[in-house]
């Protein structure tokens, strides 16, 4: 795809700009939620009762902290991709210089955004099925 102008109708350009704006809203609010949740979880882990934190000094606290960090990294990653896709689509709607290049960049980031979600859901379903099978067999 070369970097040339795509003759979208004015209405379509408005729709693309609006989709991009909502993409930014989704990404920013999800990032904010992820950051707040991570801070709350870290605070909760640091304020565990002394007995409990001694009991799980290695495994429990580190495991929970690790899970929270992994979750935070995933949230940041996919929402940054959505943000980048939205900014590229915004350029498609608002500029006329390199529509196809911006469109391809936007589609690539959007593909990564959806791909990671599907892969994570597949892993989740796999884990649930594994848990059910193990639970039934024991």
């Amino acid at each position: 795809m070369d970097a040339r102008r795509i003759p979208f109708t004015e209405e379509d350009e408005r729709r693309i700009a609006s989709a991009a704006t909502w993409g930014v809203i989704v990404a920013v609010s999800s990032l904010a939620t992820g950051v707040i949740s991570l801070l709350v979880q870290m605070q909760a882990l640091s304020s565990l009762p002394p007995g409990l934190s001694r009991l799980g000094s290695g495994f429990f606290v580190k495991g929970a902290l690790g899970a929270s960090l992994v979750q935070a990294v995933i949230v940041v990653l996919i929402n940054v991709w959505l943000l980048q896709a939205s900014l590229s689509f915004r350029k498609v709607a608002l500029t006329d210089e390199a529509d196809q290049a911006h469109l391809l960049t936007g589609f690539r980031r959007l593909r990564a955004y959806f791909m990671v979600q599907v892969v994570l859901l597949m892993l989740l379903v796999g884990l649930v099925l594994f848990g059910v099978v193990v639970g039934l067999s024991s």
Binding site: T9, W22, S29, S30
Partner: peptide, 21 residues
């Protein structure tokens, strides 16, 4: 034109996701 249709539906999906988020 059909790309525009795609963006129209993507916008509707993102509005729903935006409200939820």
């Amino acid at each position: 034109m059909t790309l525009g249709q795609g963006f129209r539906n993507l916008r509707a999906y993102l509005i729903l996701m935006g409200i939820i988020s």
